[in-house]
């Protein structure tokens, strides 16, 4: 029980820290942040939109108030889910835009990462089970090689080969011109078609960390006394590998999954940008290039909180899987 309380405590503490970090980042530069941002916007060719100034003020709190009242206002706004109006997608609110992008990212990342984790863990376990065999060499060397390729480059190559040269898939976007988002078959099949290349590029690189981690952990657990005793007990080889090898070796991978999520979400920004995919990552880049600070900040906060929640879930799962931490903190 203590473990779960600790994890919940850590979640709340990091949540607070992330919200505060988000508050502090725009204030890191010297001078009045709102003014600095407005003056930077003034430098652009377009005229400053009053709504934009308003939303920046909202984002930063009352500029003339002291830091503490600004912080209080900011926390209140966050609690209400009020992040102001998006400049890029005027007149929609930031919250509305995040709602638009969220399902795309959630499905693309959720599906590919769960598949990556499961596939990677299984492949790694297989390599460890057949240690020093040809299967092991192919899996370890292959994943090491693929792991060195920059995956946004892989995505470009995929587009070049499958979309431009072979014309099998669309080059980008979330859905084609012929369909409208909604609960209809045409849209779903279209969205599926558009998601294949981004998903594949995430799936090529995704499992690698889990393959190598799982293989190394399992090679280690299979060398431990409990696995040797299981062999001496005459347990079938497969049973030894599963219950005495993989079952224990998967634990560090679960913790690893929690830690790696932050990096994985970073990767989606790249993928979404390359495939022009209508998710949160591309939205963030658009926000950056349009200097849409309210949207950018809210997205950063939102993505971070999403990672924290996923992290908490992975930690809770770990607690269920490892009887040892229920009594004592692991590691």
């Amino acid at each position: 029980m203590r473990y779960f309380l600790r994890r919940a405590g850590f979640f709340l503490a990091t949540l607070w820290a992330a919200i505060t970090l988000n508050f502090l980042i725009p204030r890191l530069q010297p001078g009045d942040p709102a003014e600095a941002i407005v003056s930077r916007l003034g430098g652009q060719s377009q005229a400053i939109d009053p709504a934009q100034v308003e939303s920046i003020r909202k984002m930063l709190g009352t500029p003339d108030g002291n830091l503490l009242t600004q912080y209080g206002d900011y926390l209140a706004a966050v609690a209400r889910g009020d992040f102001g109006i998006s400049y890029t997608y005027f007149p929609y609110s930031v919250t509305h835009m995040i709602g638009q992008g969220l399902p795309w990212t959630l499905i693309l990342v959720g599906v590919t990462q769960v598949v990556s984790f499961v596939a990677g863990t299984l492949l790694g376990a297989w390599a460890a089970y057949r240690r020093n065999s040809r299967v092991d060499s192919v899996i370890t060397l292959g994943s090491t090689f693929v792991g060195t390729l920059p995956f946004f480059w892989l995505a470009l190559v995929l587009i070049y080969v499958f979309a431009i040269t072979l014309n099998w898939f669309p080059t980008g976007g979330g859905y084609g011109g012929g369909s409208d988002p909604g609960w209809n078959w045409l849209f779903f099949s279209d969205a599926f078609q558009h998601s294949i290349l981004p998903a594949v590029s995430l799936l090529i690189v995704g499992p690698i960390g889990w393959i190598i981690g799982m293989r190394n952990n399992m090679v280690q657990t299979l060398g431990e006394d409990y696995a040797r005793l299981a062999r001496a007990k005459g347990l079938p080889r497969r049973r030894v590998a599963l219950t005495y090898g993989a079952r224990i070796a998967v634990l560090p991978n679960v913790t690893g999954f929690a830690i790696a999520l932050g990096g994985i979400l970073g990767g989606t920004v790249l993928v979404e940008s390359i495939f022009n995919y209508p998710g949160l990552g591309r939205m963030m880049l658009e926000a950056v290039s349009n200097r849409d600070y309210p949207l950018m900040q809210a997205l950063f906060l939102f993505i971070t909180v999403g990672v924290l929640i996923a992290n908490l879930l992975a930690d809770l799962l770990y607690g269920v899987l490892d009887p040892r931490v229920r009594r004592e903190e692991a590691g």
Binding site: I259, L265, M284, F300
Partner: peptide, 13 residues
């Protein structure tokens, strides 16, 4: 904290 914060979005911000 630094481990769980998504790195690239933070870098971008």
């Amino acid at each position: 904290l630094a481990l769980v914060v998504p790195v690239l979005p933070l870098m971008i911000t």
